[in-house]
Design a protein around this nucleic acid. Structure first.
Lengths: 189, 189
DNA sequence: CACGCTGATGTCAGTGACTGCTATCAGCGT
DNA sequence: ACGCTGATAGCAGTCACTGACATCAGCGTG
């Protein structure tokens, strides 16, 4: 066997989620997380840029999936329809994940302003990538950005309802409904 | 005259903007800002919760204006039209401000991820308040949130173009165009 | 098998954001 | 004259985060 326990990153993520849940984000130090994972504080910061980032491990992968969904949308799809394909991809990926973990993670995030801030930043980052994908489909600059941003807003609100709500509604269903609401809002005036 | 120089907050804000512009956000310490304002670091943190917040002084007032604009929209306005009234109010308020200062401030913000994060958080906060105002106008839960969030996205992108662009286009004009684009995106598919 | 290279980790010292507590002291009312 | 208040200074402490250097199992190479 190796010199060290395997999957340091994963252990740090688990330890962080557990401690943030138990004692709260503010009351948890990076050293405590590292200790729980059998590592040192220094190693924590080699794996994650800061204390918040440890909760957003799958972020890069999710972004890829969303962008792939948008880029792979049928040529006939309008901007918002293409974005909806990306949202389907996101729903599919998050559906694979254990629901209880998503719920726990989301609870920690909503409970802390700094973490909410980071979540918004992640979504804004996705939006930039999605807008780029839309532009490559020939969508105009302004509309690409707006469609992408609106889509990421839908994603955020849908995940909030999905992870925070008591109903067992399907994530992709919630998203589809939200996109429909968005269209209705824009149409109604 | 008083025991201290007047308007400590204002002096701190000016000093911070100047230093963030000159040396960058990361390369500026709170102590340096305070010193430039003739105060101590401790006093800086009595006025502002953290190093970022000093750039968002007018935030609460802007939020009030936007919400008032939404709440004061004619009864016949749909959700998005009402939000557009709030954006007009925002444009009016920012128009009073010196354009060069807005531009300088925006340049500092876009240059730093932490500050961009904070800007997003502020806008999300506005969105919650705007959604609340919409609900009081009888707009449904989901549509209120979506319209509010979309509106704040328009505000952010418009300010970016206004402060960052070379053209002298009117802020309220940019916003109106963006709202039109948003409607077009939702309608087109 | 000896040797050196690599990568993940540990150790340590340092900076700076932010906080809690205590001390000052002009202005102001009584 | 006297005490109260509010804005500030001063100081000590915690903790997030960083840079520099040390360690050492595993692995390839000769």
């Amino acid at each position: 066997m190796g010199r060290w326990q395997p999957d340091s990153q994963g252990r740090l993520q688990e330890a962080a989620l557990a401690l943030y849940s138990e004692r709260g984000f503010d009351q948890t130090t990076a050293a405590q997380i590292a200790a729980r994972a059998g590592l040192t504080e220094r190693t924590f910061f080699r794996h994650f840029a800061d204390k918040r980032e440890v909760l957003f491990g799958g972020s890069a992968l999710l972004k890829e999936r969303i962008v792939a969904g948008v880029a792979g949308a049928p040529a006939g799809d309008g901007p918002l329809a293409a974005v909806a394909r990306g949202l389907d991809a996101a729903a599919a990926m998050m559906g694979e994940f254990r629901r209880d973990l998503s719920r726990q993670r989301q609870a920690v995030i909503v409970a802390n302003p700094e973490l909410r801030e980071r979540e918004l930043a992640k979504l804004a980052d996705y939006a930039v990538a999605v807008a780029d994908a839309l532009r490559q489909r020939g969508v105009g600059e302004a509309q690409a950005t707006l469609a992408a941003e609106a889509g990421m807003t839908v994603l955020r609100l849908a995940v909030q309802r999905w992870a925070g709500g008591d109903d067992d509604q399907d994530l992709s269903t919630i998203m589809r409904d939200s996109v429909a609401d968005l269209r209705a809002v824009a149409a109604s005036g």
